[in-house]
Design a protein around this nucleic acid. Structure first.
Length: 626
DNA sequence: ATAGGGTTAG
């Protein structure tokens, strides 16, 4: 018995780990209990036939009890510590479905001289779960301490542990070790390393690693694209798609298309989205349901719901995601009634709606001012479909009531609902207060936002607009002073327009665009034309920048106006002008677009933070402003 | 001689 102890203890000391020391003691005691004399572990290696049998036996075990029995048997025959057998056994325990990490660690500690293979197995098993990923990193460090050199797989598994654990420092250490060990030419390892930097929001580091990969395949490109997606570098993704197509190493696959379509949806880049659609058809990805669902979303988010519907019609197997995407697309583009029809048709098709379907249905009601229907669906979703309203559903209801002028009812709903309201909820209500010039409630909502410590410049601007809309200039001055004292800065709004697959971005009084002179001249010309048609700049009701006075406001060039002017300038007559704005559209610009659509005979589609505004022949599809 | 890399479909 002394031998057992001293052997295991010396092992554990040599391998530098207090944890391991305790495990080793426990293990030694267990063997004492089993009356098992541990002699030289490898004294009787199984022959080739035995080994094969043992491994297949190990693989056939589905429960831990079976494996325990097998372990006892193998120990008795001195076969357990055969490296191959032990590895097979450990893998079985450490990976799903059993995935018993504490037990696998226990038996791992019992192995006299773990090699790199065993460590890899252990580290990989730890990289699969968030809660133990940290131990994977520790195992890696322990391995280095005991003088075993890692191979490319070790570094990869350890990197994955760092991703799960979220440790930038450990990951950088691994990166250094990769370079030291000369594994920097392993493209699969570097792909994982890219993903690591990406998940740590170190985009430029990820890009550097990408540049160092000698043979970049589709996966490497996709990881870079997902990195740009995370870091909101959406516009660069379009460039990457082209670069990928022009490279002779690899071509975009359906995963690439999913990313790029999402980028197009965010950027309002319809032309580019259509090109991706063409690519999808050329490569037979259009039979994939997730790709089609993404196409529906892309077309809807680009204000082109007809094309979204074309894709929808062409699909054979529509699931709940397909229907929900279509319903939301119809809703956000102002086709509330059609969205509700689609919902009914979905039920006829036997597809069961879920929570996100109802978000779409309720937003249809809010976008089309269907107050009664909204209330009806809100009641029915829980009663008839067992979908418990979440914060988005309550948000829609607040929006429906608020827009309809029932701001007090909306407030009561927020107060009485079983979910804690978030900042977005209060902002919805604040927006309703602004539309209906509800000063008292507006002040109260601001208090709630301050309480949440979530108030933004935009919230104060809304409050300012509420005060100015009722002519309370004293309060306007007061809020402006408050904002100045608090040092609250308004972020400049930006508008984008796509032209020949390129996205152009404008801020108010933009000076960056290469064709700015032409654009400003065009905008002046448009303003002149629109004034003849009765367009008056609305000064009093909309203030967007605390620094500005009314005179400057009247003369300022809003980002959406610049984008529209660029559209008029650079596209042939009759072309639809599609603009996306990251904040709410201004009332003044809304009027501007409305009159422009008649005077210049152009359809104008503006997507702002909340919804689409389709302008045609002097009218707008939305019911916000009139 | 190891279950080498990446996915947001609403």
């Amino acid at each position: 018995m002394e031998t057992v102890y001293s052997f295991l203890l010396s092992q554990s000391l040599r391998r530098f780990s207090v944890l391991r020391f305790h495990s080793a003691v426990a293990a030694a005691l267990e063997y004492q209990h089993q009356h098992h004399p541990l002699s030289n572990p490898n004294s009787t290696a199984p022959n080739a036939h035995q080994e094969k049998t043992i491994i297949s036996l190990t693989k056939s075990c589905t429960h831990k009890t079976q494996l325990l029995q097998l372990q006892t048997h193998l120990l008795r025959n001195f076969h357990f510590y055969n490296p191959t057998v032990f590895l097979s056994f450990l893998s079985r325990i450490a990976f799903p479905p059993l995935h018993d990490l504490s037990y696998s660690y226990k038996i791992f500690c019992q192995f006299p001289a773990p090699n790199v293979l065993l460590y890899n197995t252990m580290i990989r098993a730890h990289s699969l779960r968030n809660d133990v990923a940290k131990n994977g990193v520790l195992l890696y460090q322990e391995m280095l301490h005991s003088g075993i050199s890692p191979n490319a797989l070790t570094s990869m598994y350890a990197t994955k542990c760092c991703i799960k654990f979220g440790s930038l420092f450990s990951g950088i250490q691994i990166h250094a070790r990769i370079l030291k060990d000369g594994h920097q030419s392993d493209s699969l390892l570097l792909t994982t390393l890219m993903d690591f930097y990406s998940s740590m929001e170190k985009g430029s580091e990820a890009h550097k690693v990408f540049d160092e990969i000698s043979h970049r395949d589709t996966v490497a490109w996709n990881v870079l694209i997902s990195c740009f997606m995370r870091n909101r570098r959406t516009r660069d993704i379009l460039g990457l798609f082209d670069a990928m197509r022009n490279s002779n190493e690899c071509q975009p696959d359906e995963v690439t298309c999913l990313f790029v379509l999402q980028a197009c949806a965010n950027l309002n880049a319809l032309e580019f989205g259509e090109r991706v659609h063409k690519y999808i058809e050329e490569h037979d990805f259009h039979n994939m349901r997730n790709v089609c669902n993404s196409l529906i979303v892309m077309y809807s988010r680009c204000g082109c719901v007809e094309k979204a519907y074309d894709v929808f019609k062409g699909m054979v197997n529509r699931d709940v995601v397909t229907w929900s995407a279509m319903i939301s697309g119809l809703a956000s583009n102002g086709y509330g009634r059609d969205a509700i029809e689609a919902f009914k048709e979905m039920q006829r098709a036997g597809i069961v709606p879920d929570d996100q379907t109802f978000t779409g249905v309720l937003s249809a009601c809010s976008h089309s001012g269907l107050v009664n229907e909204g209330g009806m669906f809100f009641k029915a979703m829980k009663r008839d479909f067992g979908v418990v309203p979440n914060i988005h559903h309550y948000g829609c209801m607040v929006d429906i009531l608020g827009r309809a002028g029932l701001v007090d009812e909306a407030y009561d709903l927020v107060i009485s609902m079983p979910i804690k309201p978030d900042a977005a909820m209060w902002r919805t209500l604040l927006g309703a207060c602004r539309i209906h010039r509800h000063v008292i409630l507006g002040e109260r909502v601001i208090e709630h936002l301050i309480e949440l410590k979530a108030q933004e410049a935009g919230d104060y601007v809304l409050l300012l607009n509420i005060y100015s809309s009722v002519g309370n200039w004293e309060k306007v001055i007061e809020v402006r002073k408050l904002m100045k004292d608090k040092g609250i800065q308004t972020t400049p709004a930006s508008s984008t327009i796509e032209l020949k697959g390129r996205v152009h971005e404008f801020v108010a009084d933009d000076v960056f665009h290469p064709r700015k002179k032409e654009i400003y001249d065009k905008l002046d010309e448009i303003n002149q034309q629109l004034r003849i048609a009765g367009y008056v700049v609305e000064i009093t009701s909309e203030l967007h920048n605390v620094e500005e006075n009314s005179k400057q406001y009247a003369l300022s060039y809003h980002s959406e106006k610049l984008a529209i002017a660029f559209g008029v300038l650079a596209t042939p007559p009759g072309t639809t002008i599609r603009v996306a704005k990251d904040l709410r559209i201004f009332v003044d610009c809304h009027n501007f677009a409305k009159i422009l659509s008649a005077v210049y005979n152009r359809k104008v589609v503006i997507r702002d933070r909340n919804r689409f505004h389709h302008f045609q022949d002097g009218f707008c599809s939305c019911n916000d402003y009139w």
